[in-house]
Amino acid sequence: MQERLISVELDDWQANGVDSAALAAALEDGKVLYFPKLAFAMSEAEQRFLSPAWSDGKAKNIGYDGAIDKLKGAQGDAADLAALKAMVKRYRESSINLITSLFPHYRQHLRIAQTSFRPSRVEGRVSSWRKDDSRLHVDAFPSRPNHGERILRVFNNVNPQGEPRQWRVGQRFDDVAARYLGQIGRPLPGSAALMNALHITKSRRSEYDHIMLQLHDRMKADPDYQANSPQLAFGFPPGSTWVCFSDQTPHAAMGGQFMFEQTLHLPVNGLHHPECSPLRVLERMRGYRLVA
């Protein structure tokens, strides 16, 4: 399972001198790109933000929405919140620079989503089994159908006490799909239109989205899969960055505190190897198109 993690010796958010084609092939095959020397530099003044006290207590993460230039989930006076927002925005810009310089082919296709600062500890969170991210899963969201669009994430550990971000990384997506797909029926006729009309979903759910939600839930609900499936436990140390397609790479957050995360979306036709995407894998296994 060690081959699920690809180490890249890069210490600058402007990627130069890397084998872009090889890294894209690994990433799009569901591997995790690990940059052990790629730190996100925080100023001495910004060190004060390494505390869960800045969270408003309503959300587990502090988020930045670049579309409206707004920080969410944080509390503090106006000056502090402005400085906190500037720090999170800088991580956003660093992450975008990393991905677009690593993979120039992605640049014209990327859609930039939320940036998160996660000051709270992973351990001890109380949640339902569906929301328990310490269970291996692939990302899929009940209210946000994505019709096969990829979910690309850039993580960085900024823990000041030297504590690693503990993860488990699971087996190939093809193997997960082979384990569960036979148990997943087709959605009920008219259910996608009804959920959209009732505003349960933000757009009409495709059969692909239906399957991905079922995979997410079945993985999390299966104690044998959680305990006995092929998996790699790894601690990402402070000062390191890691990147994966979280809709494809089974992952679980087991421990740690203080992390940044940037989400980007990429259509299947923006990939180097679209045949490796979950959409194309599931369509081959089903034998028909899953997105109209």
Results as ranks from 00 to 15, higher is better:
Leu5Ala: 00
Ile6Lys: 12
Leu10Asn: 09
Trp13Gly: 10
Gln14Leu: 14
Gly17Gln: 09
Ala25Val: 01
Leu27Thr: 06
Glu46Ile: 08
Gln47Glu: 13
Gly57Val: 10
Lys58Pro: 01
Gly63Asp: 09
Tyr64Ile: 01
Leu71Glu: 02
Gly73Gln: 10
Gln75Ile: 15
Gln75Ser: 13
Asp80Val: 13
Asp80Tyr: 05
Lys85His: 04
Val88Met: 11
Arg90Tyr: 03
Arg92Ser: 15
Glu93Val: 12
Leu98Gly: 03
Ile99Trp: 05
Ile99Phe: 08
Pro104Cys: 14
Tyr106Gly: 08
Gln108Leu: 03
Gln108Trp: 00
Gln108His: 03
His109Val: 02
His109Phe: 15
Val122Gln: 13
Arg125Asn: 07
Ser127Asp: 12
Ser134Asp: 12
Leu136Pro: 12
His137Ile: 05
Ser143Gly: 01
His147Glu: 13
Glu149Arg: 09
Leu152Val: 04
Phe155Ala: 02
Asn156Glu: 02
Gln171Glu: 15
Asp174Thr: 05
Tyr180Ser: 01
Ile184Phe: 02
Gly185His: 05
Pro189Asp: 03
Met195Asn: 14
Met195Phe: 08
Lys202Asp: 15
Tyr208Lys: 04
Asp209Lys: 07
Asp209Asn: 10
Ala221Pro: 04
Ala221Leu: 14
Asp222Tyr: 03
Asp222Pro: 02
Asp222Leu: 00
Ala227Leu: 13
Asn228Tyr: 01
Ser229Pro: 03
Pro238Phe: 04
Gly239His: 05
Thr241Val: 12
Thr249Gly: 06
Ala252Thr: 04
Phe258Ala: 08
Thr263Gly: 11
Leu264Met: 15
Pro267Cys: 11
Gly270Leu: 06
His273Glu: 09
Glu275His: 06
Ser277Ile: 09
Arg280Gln: 13
Val281Cys: 12
Leu282Cys: 14
Glu283Ala: 07
Arg286Cys: 08
Gly287Gln: 07
